[in-house]
Design a protein around this nucleic acid. Structure first.
Lengths: 203, 203, 203, 203
DNA sequence: CATGAATGAGTATTCATTCAT
DNA sequence: GATGAATGAATACTCATTCAT
């Protein structure tokens, strides 16, 4: 079995997912019709239901699959980096690079996914925990190494830090047709402030 | 004319808004039927359209009106407080108190409002700017007083800080049926970390 | 009681009727809202229901009242005219003059009234019979006088003649914003052809 | 591919059209529910929207399609007939036969179609012109042949003649539950009178 | 695997009409 | 008589999903 043969079914699934990202980003999840996605993907309406349970499953699968790839790349870049602070810096750089280089996907992650009640309430996906825990684990490591204050609760800190990044991402995405602020600058400031906030006093 | 007579039209509008908060929080904005809101408010379906243009306008009006009241109370408590840091502390305390004391409204603010494309994209409401700028202005004041580092961009900082609060709020709201973390502790830590992050070095 | 006092209630009824003619002609009977008519007439919505049973009754009352006035004027002009042919000529002249001088009313008569199922099916109003019978009676008179062929059935002839006038009226009204054909010429030709068609052979 | 397979999509469209004729004639266009038509046609509500843009399009399509068939049959019968007068006779015979043999369709043509503002005002359908011009062209032919007076304007005459037929048709349809006059007699008289009216003087 | 014609549940909104003042 | 705030019935249309081919 050749690779191309092996990947064929996967290809179609990916074609649908990619079509969905484009269509959801353009028209919004709710106004996008499944038929629109099918047409964009070059398949019949019914075919989508061979790969996804329903429209919401399609949306959630975008998250799961693209977040998986994103995590793989992130872990690749974090590979070998020991310093917790450096790991956080790389994490933030990744986060904002993602916004810049994949604006359609960013729109889906920042806006469309949150249209799903299931995503917000029931669905607590593994990839998101893994993503958050890059920071959470770095904080714990830092505490173990004495770099980070002991009285910082990593659970609260990782969510607060993620919230800060997420809100800036959201504003950047939503200001699409207005003047965007500079993501690089924002990244630097957030990291800087965060580190000053959580680092142990330096003697 | 008695006071009760004078306030009657206002009363009905408020009754509808309050009913909508309860119904939207319980069933979600999209699955809530306008008829449900009407029944809860004790009015006919059509009456809602005497006060609101449509279902989405009803949702957005909840934000505008309740946020207005919230701002009034906030400004009341901030009245006379000069220290920027103290103002931020009070702001955070208010924010989390709001969550605790008005959980239904919190659900609408954190979850249901964001179902509205209009809210996320077109609608940029004055009350939200005012709310954000309590922190933004405090930062600028702090910089003028030399308490806060000059290289902190207040625009980025206020959004990042708001994002941190908002994400913690979201997690607290969404964990409704699970074990909630302690908001007091979270508030304290976020403020503490933020201050350490943005304060000028103390000589 | 002065005349103005006596006619006051009548005035309000007429004001509503006239407002209705304008509004129905402009927006169409179905899309016109009762509230539109009320606003145009300068009265409250509910007031209309003091004078008319419902919206359809208002439409039908326009016909009945304006047709009554029209008939009065027509009978005035026919007064003293003995010759049946002359009476038909005057009748046609009246019909087309009406179109020209009261285009809004013409629109209501030709188009909007026929939106009413009741008008088309149940309601067979006296004024319409009277109007038709101006021609019908002229034909019978003509037959008595030997001017018109005996084998012409006045019932069929009056309807056919009315249909011819009505269709030309309709086309004239509907072509409002296009090039209107000349009503004078049309009137003359229809009368001429009709007379040639029904007159007894002249020895 | 068998014929039945080939004609299937057409079949469903025709089934819906025919159901609509029956339902519209029985309940009236405005009170007929789309769901009534669907049930009568034995299809789901939504299926109607695969074949027609909306309820009004369904009504107008009835006219277009049935008028097309009617015209085909008319032209078939007129084929080979040279004499303009004979063509008009056949035309009238057809018109009134249509009323008798397809009373439901007649009801739709005479009453329900005119409930549509679009039909009356915007929509100027080719089939109607073709239908009218059978008479208009006959008149022109007759003038060329010297049978019909030169001073008859064919445009006015065809509309007036059509109006006469139409009004008699209308009265016949509307008197459904009352005593109907004899269409044969009416047809004969209208044609006879019209011919006397427009024929050139015979030397 | 793929198709796409057919399905049918589900609801926001309008506006003629009423009636308490 | 006059008002106009309140009522609530009534329905066309969409589109996610299915399933026979």
């Amino acid at each position: 079995m050749t690779e191309s043969e092996a990947s064929r079914p996967n290809d179609k699934r990916v074609m649908i997912t990619d079509a969905a990202i484009a269509v959801f980003a353009e028209k919004g999840y709710r106004s996008a019709r499944v038929a629109d996605v099918a047409k964009r993907a070059g398949v019949a309406d019914g075919t989508i239901y061979l790969y996804f349970k329903n429209k919401e499953d399609l949306l959630l699968s975008i998250f799961e699959e693209k977040m998986g790839l994103l995590l793989d790349r992130l872990h690749g870049d974090l590979n070998g980096i020991e310093c917790p602070l450096e790991r956080v810096r790389i994490y933030v750089r990744h986060h904002f690079n993602q916004l810049r280089t994949q604006p359609l996907l960013a729109q889906v992650f920042q806006v469309e996914l949150r249209q799903s009640h299931k995503f917000l309430r029931e669905y607590r996906p593994e990839p998101l925990w893994a993503y958050l825990n890059v920071v959470g684990d770095a904080l714990k490591d830092g505490q173990r190494q004495g770099i980070i204050r002991e009285d910082v609760d990593p659970f609260i800190a990782k969510w607060a830090f993620f919230g800060a990044l997420d809100e800036l991402s959201m504003q950047w995405v939503l200001s699409r047709n207005r003047d965007r602020f500079d993501l690089e600058v924002a990244a630097e400031q957030v990291v800087d402030t965060f580190f000053r906030g959580v680092l142990a006093a330096q003697s």
